[in-house]
Amino acid sequence: MTEKIMIAGSGGQGVLMLGLFLARVAAMEKKNATWLPAYGAEKRGGFSHCSVIISDEEIFSPMVENPDTLIVFDQRAYDSYKSRVKENTLVIQNSTLVKDDEALPGKKVKLPALEMANRLDLAKVMNVIMAGAYVAAKKVINAENAVEELKSSLGRKESGVIKKNIDAFKAGMEYAGKK
């Protein structure tokens, strides 16, 4: 099993953290994982992007060129990477900020992650909602482990924030599970 994930959006949306989260859960599950951010000047404000690979085998280049899964947070990210989408690519798109595009191949999960986050009264959990959708749509990493990682990464945050994050993750899972 080798799963190549490309995650793209804008600075502040939690793109890099989402990638890190998925890689950490994979590490917890004793899988091999890589996480490669776009770094430096790019990371300030503008475009944000990272590659994650999860595998049972040795991982070669950490750069993802042809993703098995593309997770896009906004229209600019979508436009930049839609050419990478093939018939069997899973696309998880934040439909609040990405216009629907019937012409694109691939299996799609469209979820209004920003709206859902606002409903939870915490815009910052948008990436956690996207994570939940990914875990449900592609069973590469285990949902319970993901919740565990979520808890441990939020460690010292107040309990209300932790609960909102877990709710967000579950909301994402449910939404993707229904589709």
Partner: peptide, 10 residues
């Protein structure tokens, strides 16, 4: 190099 410096891996 910057790739190995910046990437994370298990």
């Amino acid at each position: 190099d910057g790739l190995l410096g910046q990437m994370m891996e298990t």
